[in-house]
C-alpha cells in the first residue's frame, strides 16, 4: 500500500490525529504487522530538511503519536511538509549497526579527509588553494536512533551539508522527544555519505579557506514521486 498523507498544511492541527485514526480504522488489517509514521519538515533557520520516523505495531498509539510528533516538530521555527502513514505487511523494524557520538564524529572526520583527497587536485580547486585550508561540504544524511516510549523503532534524520549544524539539530529534536516522553534514550547514530557519487558543485574562497560544495551526482534532474 502506498503512503497516505494524514497532515499537509494549515492550522487545523487536530486534523492530524483525526485523519490518522480514521486511517487505522479503515486500513489496519489482521495481516498488518506495523504502521510506519513519517514526518518530513524543514528547519527554517539553516534550511536543514529533517524527518522523524516511527514504526509501531500498536494501532491504538498511532493517533496520539501523530498528534505529539506534529506538535513537537512545529516548535522551534520548523516547517512541517507532511505526515504520512504506511501499513506494512512484513516486519520492517530492524537494528542497524549504530555508532556512538564519538564514533560518528570520527567517521565524519575520516570521510571529509577522503573528500578533501578527492577534490584537492580538481582544476576548480587546486589553483585557489595557495596555502588556504580546504573545507568540504558534502550533502549527507545523518540520523539518530532512539528507544521509543511507544512503538518499535524511532529515528530522527536530517539532510544537509553542514555536519555540525545537523548534529546539533537532530540532538535537539531527540532531546525534545525524550523530554516529551515519546522516547526513552538515544541508541546511536548513523551517517550516510557516498563519496564515490559526490562531485564538485561550487567553490567559494575566503582569505584562508577554500570551501568546496559536493553533491551526489544522481541528485540532479531527478524527480521524486511527488514531482
Amino acid at each position: 500500500m502506498s503512503r497516505i498523507t494524514v497532515w499537509g498544511w494549515g492550522d487545523k492541527y487536530e486534523a492530524a490525529r483525526a485523519n490518522s485514526e480514521s486511517c487505522i480504522e479503515k486500513f489496519w488489517r489482521e495481516a498488518t504487522k506495523e504502521c510506519h509514521i513519517a514526518l518530513v519538515g524543514k528547519d527554517r533557520r539553516e534550511g536543514i530538511i529533517f524527518g522523524i520516523d516511527v514504526y509501531t505495531d500498536d494501532p491504538r498509539s498511532v493517533g496520539f503519536l501523530v498528534e505529539r510528533l506534529l506538535s513537537l516538530a512545529l516548535t522551534g521555527k520548523n516547517k512541517v511538509y507532511e505526515i504520512t502513514m504506511e501499513f506494512l505487511m512484513e516486519e520492517a523494524s530492524y537494528k542497524e549497526h549504530l555508532k556512538t557520538l564519538e564514533e560518528i564524529e570520527k567517521e565524519y572526520e575520516i570521510l571529509t579527509g577522503m573528500c578533501i583527497e578527492k577534490v584537492k587536485n580538481d582544476p576548480r580547486v587546486k589553483p585557489l588553494t595557495d596555502g588556504r585550508e580546504i573545507l568540504v561540504f558534502p550533502d549527507m544524511n545523518l540520523f539518530v536512533e532512539l528507544e521509543p516510549e511507544y512503538g518499535l523503532r524511532m529515528t530522527v534524520g536530517a539532510f544537509h551539508f553542514n555536519f555540525n549544524e545537523m548534529l546539533e539539530f537532530i540532538r535537539f529534536l531527540s532531546e525534545n522527544l525524550i523530554k516529551n516522553k515519546l522516547a526513552k534514550r538515544i541508541l546511536g547514530y548513523g551517517l550516510s555519505l557516498d563519496i564515490d557519487r559526490l562531485e564538485v558543485s561550487d567553490v567559494d574562497v575566503t582569505e584562508d579557506e577554500v570551501l568546496v560544495d559536493l553533491v551526489a551526482s544522481e541528485s540532479k534532474n531527478l524527480r521524486s514521486e511527488n514531482y
Binding site: V40, I49, G51, Y227
Partner: peptide
C-alpha cells in the same frame, strides 16, 4: 544550480 532532489525525504 539545477533543481536537485533529496531522495531521502523527497524534497527539492
Amino acid at each position: 544550480s539545477e533543481v536537485r532532489l533529496d531522495k531521502t525525504y523527497g524534497t527539492h
